[in-house]
Amino acid sequence: MITANKLSLRYPDGTLALRDIDLHIDKGEMVFITGPSGSGKTSLLKLLLGMEFPTEGSLTIMGKPMVKGHNKDMRNLRRNIGPVFQEFKLIEGRSSLENVMTGMRFLGSNPKKIKEEAYKALVKVGLEDKIKSKVENLSWGQQQRVAIARAVARKPSIILADEPTGNLDKDNALHILSLLKEFKNNNTTVIITTHATHLIEDVQGVTHLHMDNGSITVERKEIVG
C-alpha cells in the first residue's frame, strides 16, 4: 500500500528532514512512529499526504507515485485519507458538526447521510455535548477529538494521525487509540505519530518505527492479531 525507496526530503532552506528512508506498509497495518521532536515524523506524514514531495528517492501510495503536479491523482488519494493534523486545521467559526461534515461533503454522500455519520463520529470521540459548539471555543483536547472525528468519519483507506493523543489525558488517549485500532481491524491502514511511548507498549499487533534525525532507526513488526 505504501512503499518508500531511498526517500529523502530536503526543505528549501536546506534542512534535511528525512534521509534515505526505505519503508513498506501493508493494507490494514497499524504503525506507530515515535522519535524525538524534530526527528521528521510530521515530515513523513506530509509526504504521505502530498503536502511535500520526495527530493530524492521515491514514494508510492496505492500504486501511484507521489510526484508534483498530478493534481487529480492527488485529490483522489487525499479523499481516501483521513488526516489528523498536529495543529488540527479545524475551520474556525463552524461547529464541531459542521467541521466533521465539511470533511465529507465532496465524497459523494447525500447531506442527510453525512450528518448522521458526522454525528456518530463525534459521539464516538465523546463530544456529543459539543456538537453545536464552535470549534474555537473548545479546549485543545476537545478540538483534537473533533479533528479525529473528522478523519475517521470519512471512512478512509488510510488514517494519518499526527500526535492524535498529544493533548489528551490518559483515559481519553487510550480511548482514541482503541478507536483507531477499530479501524485497523476494518482493514484501514493507520499511521500514528506519538511521543507517548508508554501508551502504546500494550497495544498488540502493530508496527513500531522509531525515528531519529530523519532516519528510521528501529523497525519492529508484530504479526500478532
Binding site: 485529490r75 481516501n80 488526516p83 486545521k89 474556525e92 470533511g103 465532496f106 470519512r154
Partner: peptide
C-alpha cells in the same frame, strides 16, 4: 486561505 488549504488537503476539488 487557511480554510481553503485545509479543504485541499482533505481532497476537495477546486470547483467545490
Amino acid at each position: 486561505k487557511e480554510q481553503i488549504n485545509t479543504l485541499r488537503l482533505l481532497g476537495a476539488s477546486e470547483g467545490f
